[in-house]
Computed example of a mutant assay.
Amino acid sequence: MPKLSIIVPCYYNEANIPVTTQELLANEARFPADVEVEYVMVDDGSGDNTMQALLEFQRRAPGRVRVVELAGNVGSYNAIVAGMAHATGDCMVIITADLQDPPELMVRMLEYWRQGIKLVIGNRQDREETGLQKATANLFHFLMKRLALRNIPDGGFDYVLFDRQVCEEVLRLKERNSNLFYLMIWLGYAYVNIPYVRQKRKIGKSRWTLQKKIKLFIDSILSFSFSPVRAISVVGLGLGLIAVLYGFYIIGLRLMSPDEPQGWTTLMVVVLFVSAFQMVALGVIGEYVWRGLDAARNRPLYVVKQVHELKSSRESGRVQAGAEL
């Protein structure tokens, strides 16, 4: 009997969880009868009543819900890794707690997995969001496809079903400051892409801030592309060529007009421009150096405060605590 683990990272989702979990339980009727389903709910250090909502869901489905409570907020990708480490299924699916992705799509994903496909991606063909949010998301995925991984689907994705083998490879890599979903594609497994329209969030407010989006963009570019370093080299060579030509111009000007005064404005423009480029170059190189330092520290991606497991309606649950890599 194949077992499907549904991993749901949660962060300030107390209002979403009752609705989302009801939809997930109702969606089980669409699965083949021989498929076993477990839920791995990860609380990413929420400061509201998310944990209480998750424990209530666990009481509604005893024996099938594992609640992983993290000690602090570590970001959605690290929270997903924690969920992957605690999942026991033959295949796993990641879905957000805000119900913007259709749970019914899991049925098609599972069909592909049973045909031998180890990675099935639900990518956003379009999204119901409008305005700046949609424009920035489209720009992000456009740049990533051009600068980092050319084989990623258009529109972006964070709704995937994958085999346990893929899970073990991702956990073995212990990547930090990276893009978890792009990492699955980087592994090289052939994947099937299922387009869908991402729904507008109906409950609660998104915690996916502009600062987090910028960090994700920087992490994704630096993890899967050498374009920033290559850009520094190209601009540096261009500036070097301009400097040589400008040097010949100054020498020629001096030879033809010995009394010609030196241009202070031109000199300051050149100095400021070159200095600005040097600062940008140091910043890009510093990002790579910092990531190397962060990897060398080998600190855990997350710290598990408690793992709540309710074996039956009469049991109070078994709790495990500790830090895990």
Rank of each mutant, 00 (worst) to 15 (best):
Leu241Cys: 11
Val229Asn: 04
Trp264His: 07
Val244Phe: 15
Leu237Val: 08
Gly204Ser: 05
Gly238Ser: 08
Leu241Gln: 06
Val234Leu: 15
Ile194Trp: 06
Val192Arg: 13
Val270Met: 11
Gly236Phe: 04
Phe224Gly: 01
Gly204Val: 11
Tyr196Ser: 02
Ser206Val: 13
Arg230Cys: 03
Lys202Ile: 11
Ser257Ala: 12
Ser233Lys: 12
Leu216Lys: 11
Ser223Met: 02
Trp264Met: 13
Val269Asn: 05
Val235Tyr: 07
Ser223Pro: 01
Ser257Trp: 08
Gln262Ile: 14
Pro228Ser: 06
Leu267Val: 00
Arg230Gln: 12
Thr209Lys: 11
Leu255Tyr: 10
Ile214Asn: 04
Ser225Asn: 06
Ser220Glu: 03
Arg230Thr: 12
Val197Gln: 11
Ser220Phe: 03
Val192Ala: 07
Ile214Trp: 07
Val234Ala: 15
Ile221Glu: 00
Leu241Asn: 06
Gly238Arg: 02
Gly240Lys: 06
Thr265Pro: 01
Lys212Asp: 10
Trp264Cys: 01
Arg207Phe: 06
Met256His: 06
Ile251Met: 12
Leu210Arg: 06
Lys202Arg: 15
Thr209Met: 05
Thr266Trp: 10
Leu239Val: 02
Asp259Leu: 11
Leu237Pro: 01
Lys215Asp: 14
Ile221Met: 14
Pro258Thr: 07
Gly252Ser: 12
Lys202Trp: 01
Gly263Leu: 03
Ile250Asp: 03
Thr266Glu: 10
Arg254Lys: 14
Ser223Lys: 02
Pro261Leu: 09
Asp219Ala: 02
Ser227Val: 15
Leu216Met: 12
Trp208Asp: 13
Leu210Pro: 00
Val234Met: 11
Ala231Arg: 08
Tyr246Arg: 13
Leu216Arg: 14
Ile242Pro: 00
Lys213Phe: 05
Lys213Tyr: 02
Pro228Asn: 07
Gly247Arg: 06
Gly252Arg: 12
Leu239Gln: 13
Gln262Glu: 07
Lys213Met: 15
Gly236His: 07
Tyr196Ile: 03
Val197Met: 07
Leu239Tyr: 11
Gly204Trp: 03
Ile203Phe: 04
Gly238Phe: 09
